[in-house]
């Protein structure tokens, strides 16, 4: 079992193996994204009932909450991949870690903008400098910092190591975002869905939310593969395996 895992783990380090496998997996990931996202959107917008307290504006949660979870999860994945890349010096992992940053930044931007649009009819304001919103904004700056640092250094291996280190340090912001609603007085509501204990969300609203959670994860995996492959094409353009890939 361990030997099998080790062999599988080492295969990820091979750029040609990754390129070919990810091309095959990506189609399924896109299909899964569409199959889960479309019914989630339809149910969230047109099927689930209006909330008795927040009215229709709560429908924004079906994109806001999955995006917020993704913004934190992607940063964690980026930090983990950066750590693996720093310890084992796997180039494909470095590229994957750096490919996480623009996707994570996109989800963070969506979280902030949809949260703001939800806040106006719900709280009467687009923005408040409270713990949750400010720490999420810091997350966006961290993503931008990782992207900028990676782009600023010409040697891409050095760039990935420097930006990866920033990602590893920046991961400290993730528990701050998560616990901010408990640590500080805030306009933002606490957790609606709890893994331990009963959730306060109505059962009819869970299905579109969970479908969208799955859709965003599949979307992340698919775009991560595409971005990694595009970067591999740039970095390995003079290598023989690229010629074979391009010719096939």
């Amino acid at each position: 079992m361990w030997k099998k895992f080790k062999a599988w783990f080492h295969q990820w380090g091979s750029a040609p193996w990754f390129y070919r496998r990810s091309t095959r997996w990506e189609r399924w990931l896109w299909a899964g994204t569409i199959i889960t996202a479309l019914p989630a959107l339809f149910m969230g917008l047109f099927v689930v009932p209006t909330d008795y307290l927040q009215g229709d504006s709560y429908r924004i949660i079906f994109i806001h909450v999955p995006s917020a979870w993704m913004s934190m999860m992607i940063f964690g994945v980026m930090a983990l991949l950066s750590l693996v890349a720093l310890v084992w010096r796997i180039r494909t992992t470095e590229i994957m870690a750096m490919a996480c940053a623009p996707i994570g930044a996109a989800f963070t931007a969506i979280t902030l903008s949809t949260g703001s649009l939800w806040g106006r009819p719900t709280w009467g304001t687009y923005w408040q400098w409270d713990g949750r919103m400010t720490s999420e904004l810091i997350l966006l700056f961290l993503y931008i910092g990782v992207i900028a640092l990676y782009q600023a250094i010409e040697d891409k291996r050095q760039a990935a190591r420097a930006a990866g280190l920033l990602a590893i340090i920046g991961v400290v912001n993730i528990p701050i975002i998560h616990y901010s609603v408990q640590w500080w007085t805030t306009l933002h509501q606490g957790s609606t869905i709890k893994l331990t204990g009963p959730s306060s969300i109505d059962a009819s609203m869970i299905a579109p939310l969970l479908l969208m959670v799955v859709a965003t994860k599949l979307f992340f995996a698919a775009t991560l593969f595409t971005r990694t492959r595009a970067e591999l094409l740039v970095q390995d353009r003079h290598k023989k395996w690229i010629n074979e890939v391009v010719a096939s």
């Binding site: 903008s113 939800w118 106006r120």
Partner: peptide, 15 residues
């Protein structure tokens, strides 16, 4: 609700 519709469509559109 017509008061909420612009916020909902803007949120989904931006996303």
């Amino acid at each position: 609700n017509p008061d909420h519709a612009p916020f909902i469509f803007a949120a989904y559109g931006i996303s």
